[in-house]
Design a binder for these strands. Structure first.
Lengths: 124, 124
DNA sequence: TCCTGCATTGGATTTAATCCAAATCAATCA
DNA sequence: TGATTGATTTGGATTAAATCCAATGCAGGA
């Protein structure tokens, strides 16, 4: 456990946190000025392999990192400003995929992204 | 309608087609040797604005383009080889998001990505 | 304290996508 | 048919995200 990793872990803390690698780096720099981008990428990669952090690809730009890996959830994204909230739908989408639609795959996971307009953008 | 656009449209034809821009360009070149990447990107962008083609971001690498825009569907992705199939789950995931989980958003769309292992990779 | 091996650094590289000005082409009209 | 015009295409440069790599630094154990 190095200072750099601690800082990255600190930045990635809280609910509804979905930062890009660059944003993580920007915040990390304020706490540890010499930290390099490569280290941030390395650490994020390790956290993902350890299952502590999830990669989410809600927009088509940079990957985002979601520290809320231990409680399963999905995402609600504002189509205008890109704001992201964690959501917990009822029901089990896995059960909604009939065998005839599985093409012989062993299906193990499902990812749901809701899109809409957030209250902020709606009122603007 | 130019020769270039016709070629891009021809490449993007069929079921379960989910090519990256580069793959579209590579196939387009075999039919029209001097077509440029910029034109492929331009044309894909126009097709997306017209609603004829969907962008899908199933992996975190390049965007993929899905010509099957007129019948709504979701995707089943092989975690190992990246193969993608179009699937049609039963049920309506939109209905599974309670008001208390909408954070004031106007939710209009939902995108579901199933992940698993395809028969090919499973037998290898 | 001294080693040893992993972590970090930063700069170069790769990949995807976009931008831009110049050249080209398709469609219309006389 | 030939000229005009405005949209399209081109390719090279540029941006952005991510990765790679060799050299350096550092944490933790003996």
């Amino acid at each position: 456990m190095t200072a750099q990793r601690r800082v990255v872990a600190e930045v990635l803390d809280g609910e509804h946190v979905h930062l890009t690698a660059d944003e993580v780096h920007a915040q990390a720099v304020t706490k540890l000025p010499e930290i390099s981008r490569a280290t941030v990428y390395n650490t994020l990669g390790e956290l993902v392999s350890l299952g502590e952090v999830l990669e989410v690809a809600t927009d088509k730009r940079a990957k985002r990192y979601d520290p809320n890996a231990h409680r399963p959830h999905h995402h609600l994204v504002c189509a205008q400003c890109g704001a992201i909230r964690d959501v917990h739908p009822t029901g089990n989408p896995l059960a909604d995929l009939p065998d005839t639609e599985r093409f012989g795959f062993t299906v193990s996971d499902v990812e749901v992204t809701y899109r809409g307009v957030c209250p902020n953008c709606a009122s603007a």
